[in-house]
């Protein structure tokens, strides 16, 4: 089960920060507010689900600079840029630099909630996938060479017999390996196993 998504608010203006946190708290979001991009970078959970509302104009590290730092640090929290009225050109630049969306200040409530919900759910799915992937990789590490070969075959939808033929072993041996694989990967059914292979982005088994 993944963590509750967090809305990060990054704005040097105390009043904007606090008021936005108040509004989002009331709407049931979990918020964290930061007065600078620097403090945000120190505190953000790089993999956890969330969405950052970032003011484009800030002293020191500005919105654009923050996007670059996040890319460098492999922080995949989606960023929604907050711009002043009529700063569309800046917004376009921000989106080219990796922001997922932009909102004009003063913020429109409905737009704010729509944008947030959209990116939070994307982020949540991405975070879940990421989590599963990490877990799957960890489990995969426990497999022996032979077991991994069997797993590859299964992931490609081959039968025990087919795998046995490929590996030059008896179907009976394949069956024993398969049971071990299922156990180590905590898969109850074949479909669990296949889903796991998908999460891992299983490609190498097809020989390419």
């Amino acid at each position: 089960m993944s963590a509750k998504p967090i809305v990060y608010i990054v704005d040097d203006e105390e009043a904007v920060r606090t008021s936005l946190a108040t509004l989002l708290d009331i709407h049931g979001f979990t918020t964290r507010a930061y007065e600078s991009g620097k403090v945000f970078l120190e505190d953000v959970d790089p993999a956890g689900p969330g969405c950052a509302l970032v003011d484009v104009k800030m002293p020191g590290l500005d919105g654009m600079g923050l996007l670059h730092k996040m890319a460098e640090g492999n922080i995949r929290v989606p960023v929604v840029m907050m711009t002043g009225y009529g700063e569309v050109a800046t917004a376009v630049k921000a989106m080219k630099a990796g922001a997922v969306d932009f909102l004009e200040k003063p913020l429109d409530e409905e737009e704010l909630l729509t944008v947030l919900n959209r990116h939070l759910s994307h982020s949540q799915i991405a975070a879940q996938l990421e989590e599963q992937k990490v877990q799957a990789h960890a489990r995969l590490a426990h497999l022996t060479e032979r077991e991994r070969e069997v797993f590859n075959g299964l992931a490609m939808g081959k039968t025990n017999k087919g795998i046995a033929l490929d590996l030059g072993i008896s179907p009976r041996t394949v069956e024993i390996h398969r049971a071990r694989v299922m156990e180590k990967l905590e898969a109850h059914t074949l479909s669990d196993l296949i889903r796991l292979a998908l999460v891992l982005g299983h490609r190498h088994a097809d020989g390419s």
């Binding site: 008021s19 936005l20 509004l23 709407h27 002043g84 009225y85 003063p106």
Partner: peptide, 20 residues
């Protein structure tokens, strides 16, 4: 315009919260 936009944003946020 930017400077005035800050308090306006805060006002709007607070009022939206209060209405909610």
């Amino acid at each position: 315009a930017h400077e005035l936009n800050q308090p306006l944003t805060a006002i709007s946020n607070y009022l939206l919260a209060a209405r909610q």
